[in-house]
Amino acid sequence: MHILVTGATGFLGGAAARALAEAGHRVTATGRDLNRGRTLEQAGVRFLPADLRHPGAVAELLPGVDAVLHCAARSTLWGNWADFMRDNVQASADLAHACAERGVRLVHVSTPSIYNATGLSHQVPESTPVGPRFDSLYARSKALAEEAVRLALPDAAVLRPRGIYGPGDPSIVPRLALALRSGRLPRLTGDEVYTELTHVQNVVHAARLALERPAPGIFNVSDGVSTPIWATIDRLADVLGVPRPSRRLPARLVEGAAALLEGVYRLRPGAPEPPLTASGVRLLTRAMTLDLTRARERLGYMPLVHPVDGLDEVFAGLAR
């Protein structure tokens, strides 16, 4: 199968492009980072630099392609709405329309962040109604992107992986490590908070199943095991040789302060991401587990990597 992977110079897209090529598929990868593109070519992946935001870019990539894995996205808790609309909603809609016109299979990567404002936290199913309120611009944009994709291409598969991590993770673990090393991370809850994470190879496994065994619909994806957030942070602190968070601050107070800080930063055009965001605080204080029944039954999905092993691998890399 000839598969196009978008966002292949990013964390998930790069891992997916390499794994699909190793599995014997013909893979064309696209992205904007030429250096990472050259690294993909060394792994046997054809790389075509492209910016999906530009008119006509998608049409030039699809000839001869059987399926698309759409990983490209603006994946951040900070930014302005115009950028999220352009990068997440419009680019996804354009790609879905182009796939529909050419009869190309599409697997679209979304996020369970769209559930965050629903008030549900335990075994959340894909059927959960979302919106019109979301807890971040990112979540809102991904929900709209899903809507646009499924409107243009009802047969698309939409994956919602929770908290992607693994070797090369540029976000979750590095951010926690930076906060621990700086000593600025307080303990925000008295009780443990359980969430679910997804090792990058588990996301790739789910994507490969969706590409090879077409199954239209929306699918939650995770490691399938609840992970205690604060026990994991303590273990990371031990690995780094820094103090565990001990100074207690009420989560609501910190979340409110973060919201005020965001407001200040938004008054400064071009300002970088603030050191603290309300959405980031909520990720550390609010539980979230997912119902994986649909992915198991329709895709045949079973996680390949357990979070204990996956986090041990990532932590060992930080300790070196």
Rank of each mutant, 00 (worst) to 15 (best):
P250E: 11
L261R: 09
P55C: 04
R86C: 07
L249K: 04
K142N: 03
R296I: 08
D191F: 00
G217P: 12
D169R: 03
L299C: 07
E192W: 03
L240T: 04
R266T: 06
V130Q: 13
S141V: 03
D309W: 02
D87S: 12
V45N: 04
P112H: 04
F11D: 14
L159Q: 07
Y194T: 14
A23W: 09
N88M: 02
T128W: 02
D94L: 00
E196C: 05
C99K: 00
S113W: 07
R286Q: 15
L188Q: 07
R320M: 03
P228Y: 02
T195L: 14
N116Q: 11
G37N: 02
W230D: 06
Y115I: 06
A57D: 11
G256W: 15
G310N: 10
A91W: 01
L20Q: 04
T293W: 12
A93F: 00
R46A: 14
A231F: 00
R298I: 07
P274A: 06
N80K: 06
Q201L: 13
A145H: 06
V200R: 10
G24F: 11
D33P: 02
H108K: 00
R187N: 10
A316M: 01
P307Q: 08
R175G: 12
S127I: 05
S75N: 13
Y301R: 03
L176I: 14
A59N: 01
L240M: 11
P303S: 09
Q90V: 14
A72W: 05
G37C: 04
S110E: 11
V124K: 08
G183E: 07
L188N: 09
G270V: 12
R252D: 14
G317A: 10
A91R: 00
T128P: 08
G13A: 04
I233G: 01
F11E: 13
P307G: 06
A271Y: 07
V254R: 04
L40R: 11
P49G: 09
G44H: 13
V281E: 03
P112Y: 01
L176K: 09
R74D: 08
R286C: 12
R213H: 15
A117G: 05
L283I: 12
V221C: 03
N35K: 13
A258E: 10
G37A: 02
G168Q: 09
D135G: 09
I172S: 14
D87H: 08
E262S: 00
M302N: 08
P274I: 11
